[in-house]
Design a protein around this nucleic acid. Structure first.
Lengths: 217, 217
DNA sequence: CAACAAATGTCAGGGAGTTGTAAGCGGAGT
DNA sequence: ACTCCGCTTACAACTCCCTGACATTTGTTG
């Protein structure tokens, strides 16, 4: 039974270790700090529920899915209330097990609340200062990111060179005018932002400035 | 049916709002930002699965529990893979629904004092002040651990040198600037944290600072 | 208390990547 | 057709970051 489980879960693309007794499981948990634990309640030596409670008492950040033949509604409620994240009774379908494992792990690495700006398939994360289009990461420099961020904050509105000079470059007086610098940076930004993609988000408004928006035909 | 659900969940000590169509539900979600959404798939106007996908596409941090009469294993897998956190088929027992809701919400609010922080294969134990990657223990000095801990607490966020100076070094005025000290410590930390491993967790953001995160392709 | 080891801080050089400058080109509008 | 305005490329200067070596501090042991 355990072997079938292991090979099945491995086939799902995960790293798996097995413990055949409660004692061993408890030891392994502390050694490996797994992200998720699939727990059978009928374990020798130490009851599954006891293991569950101990892990929770130590406030270890481990997802726990109970997979067992104790499948009465009362058992389920007891398991979940003891701290399990999910409860699946035997007999079960393997795809469902994998889907539930996936759902639990999906949550595991959601870094709090990311501050996201979106325009069409463009996503800007101001926390990690990363930008991506269609889940393809754009490798932007500091200036390019600041520039894009400013345009995104003003999406749908035309942005003049004066605004950019003041709010992005933050220099109010210079020997040489900033206009060319801005143009050059726009070119560089376009090369990374729009050139590799079909829909162009960054448009020029002649005599006025630039605008970032989803083009509407 | 909906009324029975609402009063039952309210009895569990939660605040509840109902939407009777997909359209209305979508509107309410954006207005109220609930912690959890109990979703029926057979909704008029807009399919439940479509709502689910849209919420996920916007990466809103909302737990979703599907509660429906479409209860074949295939339906379950489809729902979970579309982004649901749990799936409960009708008929169901009310205590189980409450237990599952409880399990989902339990996770929502407990990031504060986690004794264990994890990023990819990196594990930080704040109790014993030990760090390990892939089960290999890292031998860190006090400052290196404090530094790594701070970065881990801010994982996915860019951390500036000013923040580090204030929160890790805790010196607000010095004869020499801390920047170089920080750089040197970063080098030393990298040597132990990233150099021996293939995936690099600690990245520099030029002109901004540093960030600890699992690298995305 | 001296001697040592480990950890942390200081300094300076080098290199990669980013940004600013200038000049030529091309296309839109008049 | 002429004139601007914006786009592009190439180059130069600079900023920022990394790193090795040395100095200082801290803590440990005989």
């Amino acid at each position: 039974m355990a072997d079938a489980l292991v090979s099945g879960i491995k086939a799902g693309g995960y790293d798996v270790s097995v413990a055949r007794t409660g004692e061993e499981g408890f030891f392994l948990v502390h050694k490996l700090f797994p992200q998720l634990l699939v727990l059978d309640l009928n374990l020798p030596q130490r009851g599954g529920l006891e293991i569950l409670r101990q892990i929770r008492a130590q406030s270890l950040d481990i997802r726990i899915l109970i997979l067992t033949s104790n499948n009465s509604p009362e058992d389920r409620v007891a398991g979940l209330n003891a701290g399990a994240d999910d409860y699946l009774g035997k007999p079960f379908s393997f795809p469902e097990l994998l889907a539930r494992i996936g759902a639990l792990l999906r949550r595991a690495q959601a870094p709090a609340t990311a501050a996201l700006l979106r325009i069409a398939d463009l996503a800007l994360d101001t926390e990690s200062r990363t930008a991506s289009r269609s889940d393809v990461r754009l490798d932007l420099t500091t200036r390019e990111f600041d520039l894009l961020l400013y345009l995104a904050e003003n999406q749908g509105r035309a942005v003049s060179r004066e605004m950019l000079a003041k709010d992005v470059w933050k220099e109010n007086s210079r020997f040489t005018p900033l206009d060319n610098v801005i143009d050059v940076q726009m070119t560089r930004l376009r090369r990374k932002l729009d050139d590799p993609f079909a829909v162009k988000l960054l448009q020029t408004i002649r005599g006025v400035g630039f605008i970032l928006q989803e083009p509407k035909p």
